[in-house]
């Protein structure tokens, strides 16, 4: 079966400093995958490299067996909430409609069909009553739901979500989890950057442990072990990071 996401020797560097080394990955479709690792481990970078937002130094990415640049239409993306300006003059509906823009050609306007889809997506995350709200006047959890609705509107087969649970209230968190399970049940593949070790076992059926490179990837039951977590979060890679620093100094 073609993997939903496949990477080979994916290496990414910021300002000559490598932040992700030789990632080999083959995510089978229809799974809900948690990406975990300490701060600065390259979790967000991995997602951005897959999306082509940061160019990799080496390696390649395939999505459903196609080069990533050609398959981006099948990928939905939920960025970190801090990455956009919430004072921007758009309302909830506008943001969700953006999810449809990829399918509209140059110069084509948004039509009734797009609005209908956007409304359905808002309904799913329980935000339909707030469709006309300016986005600055939303709570953190509500903002996150808007992003999710936008990703739903993209009608993708692969979803990449960067910390959707960061700073949201318990109700929203539960709602998001239900939504993710539902997507999985419909055969979608979802990769979620996640921080909370306590809930990881419960939420995800596969885990990807990252710290500058892939420490482990597999079923949650196999991967969520003391030893592997220690390897991910423990400081055994001092030489690697020291040398990364030196490479940077060498310019």
């Amino acid at each position: 079966m073609t993997p939903a996401l496949e990477t080979h020797d994916l290496t990414v560097a910021y300002h000559k400093r490598p932040v992700l080394y030789g990632v080999d990955l083959a995510v089978p479709p229809g799974h809900l995958v948690g990406i975990m690792g300490p701060n600065g481990a390259g979790k967000t970078t991995l997602i951005k490299a897959v999306m082509g937002i940061v160019p990799p130094v080496s390696g390649w990415v395939k999505i459903f067996g196609e080069p990533a640049s050609r398959a981006l239409g099948r990928v939905g993306y939920v960025p970190q909430r801090e990455s956009v300006d919430w004072d921007f003059p758009v309302n909830v509906m506008d943001v969700v409609l953006m999810g449809r823009y990829g399918r509209l050609g140059l110069g084509r306007r948004v039509g009734a069909k797009e609005r209908e889809i956007a409304r359905a997506c808002l309904e799913k995350v329980g935000m339909l009553p707030l469709a006309d709200r300016q986005i600055a006047n939303l709570s953190g959890g509500q903002q996150q739901r808007v992003f999710l609705a936008r990703a739903l509107a993209q009608e993708s087969d692969l979803y990449l979500m960067d910390e959707p649970f960061a700073g949201v209230d318990a109700t929203t968190e539960a709602a998001i989890v239900t939504l993710l399970q539902e997507l999985k049940a419909r055969g979608k593949t979802i990769l979620v950057v996640h921080h909370d070790l306590t809930s990881a076992q419960q939420y995800f059926d596969m885990l990807l442990l990252v710290n500058l490179r892939v420490v482990a990837f597999g079923d949650t039951a196999e991967v969520f072990t003391e030893e592997l977590l220690q390897k991910t979060y423990g400081g055994r890679l001092t030489i690697l990071s020291k040398i990364a620093q030196e490479v940077k100094n060498q310019g």
């Binding site: 937002i53 981006l72 990928v75 990455s83 956009v84 300006d85 758009v90 990829g102 084509r108 936008r150």
Partner: peptide, 17 residues
């Protein structure tokens, strides 16, 4: 559309091609 999305969320704009 292009102006709106690339101003609001450049990452999304990239992902929408």
């Amino acid at each position: 559309k292009e102006l709106l999305v690339s101003s609001f969320d450049p990452a999304l704009a990239t992902s929408l091609g």
